[in-house]
Design a protein around this nucleic acid. Structure first.
Length: 888
RNA sequence: GGGCGUUUAGCUCAGCUGGGAGAGCGCUACCCUUACAAGGUAGAUGUCGGGGGUUCGAUCCCCUCAACGCCCACCA
């Protein structure tokens, strides 16, 4: 036997088997969708990692939760497809390559032509662009990598053009001079969603504006005095008695001496600031709207890099912040700066660049999302697409309720170029799904394409369609669009509900009239053990690849699934990973024990009447775990599923069933041995099967020992299902009593410091025949598990042993006679404690029963249960009392 | 400014439509018992954030206060 044990390493070492099995799966095409017994598809679109990305623990959670459900469904017999891809991530990627080129060649992108520089990015992409996908493989991700696409692939461009041109022709995409968020570092427009508001300490500057043809001065409060150079009006509330009389008059802007109207608008808040507002339509969102209402002139004072232009007069060329200082000086000099008050306010910053966003008016492309947003809300309200947990609907709705048109153009080089063309000859403008050869109108070849590119989210918003071949009919057939669209589940973090989930819902639905996914599971965001975001500056990041090297992919995966339910944060403590690494080792060693006996095991389980009680018990317990795992997975409760498996393996299988099997396996009874081996094998096969979605590597390895030669790899084995016929309530009941007795004996031993090697005699008093028989049949097991020498089973009418320790259950009394000195006082004290506990419980139930309103109002079954509990504790109390007396 | 969420054992978190609180890790004591010391056995710990209400009964429902967190919002 020992030799056989030694064939398998004592300590599970994940490294060797991880590569082995991943290669087998990949080469065996196991990640490909194949028809199964369900005759139903299951598909997931992988949230796009940026090509520049490196695997962090957030990706690991993403990949693990997706892979677990994919493996689960695959085993359940769904035609299962996981669609990977990478995102060109316009700004991020361009920035990475710009930095690299600067480091290498000391050149900026402006020293290249656009074509040259874009080619450099492509070179970079070809070399490094697949790193992140490869990294996911080390976690066991079972995606169909042949399906992988890049958002800038020519086929992705087809989808982008298709959607763009259709929207353009429907007039939902339009070009307009509008105030947008201008990022002066990127020198591009960015969308509202990409602006991050940060609290900034600033000042309120109270400036006096002269009213034309009067001595009166208007006191205006502003946080941005430099923008006064762009002021084209002063506004007050029409109901503000302080200023009413000035409506229609004019004010003179200091420094530039522009004469502007004083107008009335309800928007102005009487109580805010001085109640008097300078209006800068060129550089403020509200002022822009106000300006539109009143037909105000727009004065732009900024260059693309954020410095002042010629409208900045003598401050031309200065940055905003420098100009602000200079202008403050000048206002002081003019003695019209009345006061400066400290003021904390929210200022928009570029999400990528971190620089202060300048609202600026410029000509940009917009997508009108009003109707799409409405539809997006309806789809979720109608449960066509369901969120798990449901609460995240709110976040989704919040975004779609009051949508502003989406600024989709970016002044970058890296991205899908806007497919709009301008004829230089006849000045015709048109949008085209293909590369045109000439002007649609006059056929001139003298035309050019709009130089702007589209927001990255424009292409990722169409991603489910793109991956499945839309809009090319042939490609759609190849990629089985009709089978896999709509995809089953989208799994992602809540941070991109706006950016991505909402946009896919709007765009895909608009494009083909059907939602992109039926379920959305929103998982937690991974934080460090203190709940802090993981970041480079804090140095609290956990590198998943390092963890995989240290503890194995299975341990990491199990930690992540055990922590993934409906929670919004997952605080990851490396100690927990090591805890689950221990669990993997436990499974491994349980197998090491079982392994040598497997050769005598049958493939099929005997009929239930032939099974031993313990065998029926473990099968019944196994059956309930299988149910929990199946049910939990349907609701994305990875935590419940993981916990159920964990406790079954530890608390049922290893602690009891393996221990109880030793006597049989080491006995001479060939038949019993073979049968026990069969049950162990049966159970173990189910264990590795239900564990496989969470810990694919170790389970596939163990499966290779357990499977019959005809059976395929575990990755495509049948997932265990709950079976009504395998519920054995009586056996569970008896076993629970047995466990209680063993635990109490151990407990008694510990209370008087009896060492494990010192065997004791036990006397058990009960009237219940079932209990008597069960104990009789388990004498050997009791000897092993409770370390006893002999056991006497007696009636309650029999005499209790004198010097002894005892404990009571509701169905029996357990006595351990002690030789030599017994500390009576200590025994009585212990029993008193037991008594108190039981009394407390009894009082609780009895209190209820003596409340007639409870009897009257509570449901029958609850009352019955309380009655039952009360009588059980009453019995226990009586027995303990009796024994305390006996000791005295 | 608006909205959402959280508050349960030392730590991280479960707790389904109300029947009286659980897990993992950690901690303490004792054990190298022939699968596993990455192990075994036993054990301790909670006024379920505070206050009020509904109910026979509240961790769960309602109100209120407090602390913390997140998201959204146009820089008067």
């Amino acid at each position: 036997m020992d030799q056989t044990h030694n064939e398998i390493e004592k300590i599970f070492s994940p490294k060797d088997i991880e590569t082995k099995w991943y290669t087998r799966w990949e080469e065996g095409k196991y990640f490909k969708a194949r028809k199964g017994k369900q005759h139903r598809p299951f598909s997931i679109v992988m949230p796009l990692p940026n090509v520049t990305g490196r695997l962090h623990v957030g990706h690991a959670l993403d990949a693990t939760t997706q892979d677990a459900i994919i493996r689960f469904k695959r085993m359940k017999g769904y035609e299962t497809l996981w669609l990977p891809g990478t995102d060109h991530a316009g700004i991020a990627t361009q920035a990475v390559v710009e930095k690299l080129v600067w480091e290498k060649e000391k050149k900026t992108r402006h020293q290249f032509t656009k074509e040259e520089f874009v080619e450099k990015i492509w070179q970079w992409k070809r070399e490094y662009g697949n790193i992140i996908l490869d990294q996911q493989k080390s976690l066991g991700a079972s995606a169909d990598w042949d399906y992988a696409m890049f958002t800038l692939d020519p086929d992705a461009n087809k989808a982008v053009r298709e959607f763009f041109v259709n929207m353009y022709n429907e007039k939902l995409i339009y070009q307009a001079n509008y105030i947008i968020n201008w990022d002066t570092t990127l020198q591009s427009a960015i969308s509202d969603a990409e602006v991050e508001h940060k609290e900034v300490k600033g000042n309120f500057y109270h400036i006096l504006y002269q009213v034309e043809g009067s001595d009166e001065k208007l006191e205006i409060a502003t946080t941005r005095p430099e923008t006064l150079l762009g002021d084209t009006a002063v506004a007050i509330n029409p109901n503000d008695d302080r200023y009413k009389h000035l409506i229609g008059k004019k004010a003179i802007i200091p420094i530039c001496n522009r004469v502007v109207p004083i107008l009335a608008d309800e928007y102005v808040d009487i109580d805010k600031g001085t109640g008097c507002l300078k209006v800068t339509p060129g550089h403020d969102f509200n002022d822009f709207e106000l300006g539109k209402r009143h037909n105000l002139e727009i004065v732009n004072i900024l260059n693309k890099d954020g410095t002042l232009n010629e409208n900045g007069l003598q401050y031309k060329g200065l940055t905003c912040s420098k100009a602000r200082l200079e202008i403050i000086k000048e206002l002081e000099h003019l003695e019209i700066l009345k006061e400066i008050k400290e003021h904390i306010h929210q200022v928009g910053h570029g999400e990528r660049s971190g620089t202060v966003i300048e609202p600026m008016v410029s000509r940009q492309w917009f997508l009108n999302v009003q109707k799409m947003a409405k539809q997006g809300i309806e789809r979720v309200t109608a449960d066509t697409t369901r969120f798990f947990p449901k609460g995240w609907e709110n976040t989704y709705f919040a975004w779609l309720k009051e949508p502003r048109d989406w600024c989709i153009s970016r002044q970058l080089w890296w991205g899908h170029q806007i497919p709009v063309y301008y004829c230089k000859k006849c000045h015709y403008t048109w949008a085209s799904k293909d590369e045109p050869s000439g002007c649609t109108k006059c056929d001139s070849s003298n035309f050019y394409q709009d130089p702007d590119v589209l927001d990255t989210w424009f292409s990722s918003g169409l991603w489910p369609l793109t991956l499945l071949g839309w809009p090319n009919p042939e490609r759609m057939r190849e990629r089985k669009f009709d089978t896999f669209y709509p995809t089953s589940t989208l799994i992602t973090g809540y941070d991109i509900i706006f950016f991505w989930v909402a946009r896919m819902m709007m765009m895909c639905d608009k494009a083909i009239g059907n939602v992109p996914f039926n379920h959305v599971y929103i998982h937690a965001i991974v934080r460090d053990k203190f709940g802090r975001k993981m970041s480079k500056s804090l140095g609290n990041g956990i590198d998943p690849l390092e963890i995989v090297g240290q503890y194995g992919a299975d341990a990491l995966r199990f930690t992540l699934t055990a922590g993934s339910g409906y929670n919004r944060n997952l605080n990851l403590d490396p100690e927990r990973i090591s805890g689950y690494r221990n669990f993997m080792n436990k499974v491994w060693n349980a197998f090491r024990f079982v392994h040598p006996f497997l050769n005598t095991a049958e493939q099929k389980l005997p009929t239930s009447n032939k099974l031993a009680p313990h065998e029926r018990w473990i099968i019944s317990e196994l059956n309930s775990v299988i149910k929990i795992v199946n049910d939990s997975m349907e609701e994305y409760r990875y935590d419940d599923a993981s916990a159920a498996i964990y406790s079954f393996v530890y608390d049922k299988f290893c602690s009891w069933f393996i221990e109880l099997s030793k006597n049989i396996l080491y006995s001479e009874d060939q038949k019993a041995r073979a049968q026990r081996a069969t049950v162990l094998k049966f159970t173990f096969k189910k264990i590795v099967a239900i564990l496989h979605p969470f810990a694919p590597f170790i389970t596939e390895e163990l499966w290779s020992y357990l499977k019959s030669p005809q059976e395929d790899l575990l990755i495509v084995a049948d997932f265990p299902e709950f079976t009504e016929e395998l519920v054995f309530a009586d056996d569970q009941n008896n076993m629970n009593r047995f466990i209680e007795i063993v635990s109490l004996i151990r407990n008694l031993r510990a209370s008087v410091d009896i060492k494990p090697k010192d065997l004791v005699n036990v006397e058990i008093f009960t009237e219940i025949v079932e209990v008597k028989n069960y104990l009789q049949n388990n004498l050997a097991n009791l000897q092993d598990l409770a370390k006893i020498k002999s056991m006497a089973i007696k009636n309650r009418s029999d005499i209790r042993p004198k010097k002894s320790i005892m404990a009571a259950t509701s169905f029996c009394e357990i006595f351990i006679p002690l030789e030599g000195f017994v500390d009576i006082a200590a025994q009585v004290q212990r029993l008193q404690k037991d008594l108190q506990k039981a009394q407390k419980e009894f009082d609780k139930y009895n209190g209820k029963l003596s409340n007639e309103n409870f009897i009257k109002n509570a449901p029958e079954d609850v009352v019955a249960e309380v009655k039952h509990n009360a009588s059980e504790f009453a019995q226990k109390i009586a027995v303990i009392r009796e024994n305390i007396q006996r000791f005295n």
